[in-house]
């Protein structure tokens, strides 16, 4: 079945660190407790400086974002190892990020949790698109179409089956590494 995702995009610059994705004061919330997971989502990206990002990622009073796709520059998710970062984005409703590059632990945590698809772009998309533009990600062909232009994305390779299984544990069970539930 063809898998596609259509959504307005939220565009951020280079070096968005985990404190901007989910500020440290919200790390008191435990992601495996369902109501705290939801709360984490409501704080996603609240650490972005207001002057640089006048459009809110999550509207005041809302708990979910209208942007299922984030377009980012280099080194997205640098900083701490907090898994709260990809989790807060996933809980807010983000399904995919298209960045020029990722910090290692953020990328790994995205895969291990299966919360979202961390795609790498082949070009600097943040200079070609703006927040609110509509994008279509075609997962079968590893492309993103924005403003009528189709851009190739780097295939996720080894990690894609882990995300598609729903994260590290499901994948490890499917591959016989740990016993089933």
């Amino acid at each position: 079945m063809a898998k596609k995702l259509t959504s307005p995009v939220y565009v951020v610059e280079d070096n968005i660190d985990t404190d901007q994705i989910i500020p440290a004061q919200y790390l008191t919330l435990v992601p495996t407790i369902p109501e705290e997971y939801e709360k984490l989502g409501s704080y996603a990206m609240v650490g972005l400086p207001d002057d640089l990002y006048p459009i809110e990622f999550i509207k005041k009073g809302a708990t979910k974002t209208g942007y299922k796709i984030i377009i980012a520059g280099k080194n997205f998710g640098c900083g701490s190892s907090r898994e709260h970062a990809p989790i807060s984005l996933g809980a807010a409703g983000v399904e995919a990020i298209v960045a020029e590059s990722y910090a290692r632990i953020f990328f790994r945590n995205s895969v291990a949790t299966g919360e979202l698809y961390p795609y790498e772009a082949r070009e600097r998309l943040i200079e070609r698109v703006k927040t609110g533009d509509i994008a279509i990600i075609d997962f079968d062909n590893d492309t993103i179409e924005i403003n009528g232009q189709v851009h190739q994305l780097k295939p996720m390779g080894d990690v894609r089956p882990v995300i598609e299984a729903g994260g590290l544990f499901n994948y490890a069970r499917q591959s016989g590494m740990i016993p089933g539930p």
């Binding site: 992601p31 495996t32 701490s80 190892s81 907090r82 898994e83 632990i105 790994r108 945590n109 291990a112 949790t113 994260g167 590290l168 544990f169 490890a172 740990i178």
Partner: peptide, 13 residues
Amino acid sequence: GIGNTDAGFILGT
């Protein structure tokens, strides 16, 4: 450094 999911995996295995 690792995330919670990896740590949960190590706790078990």
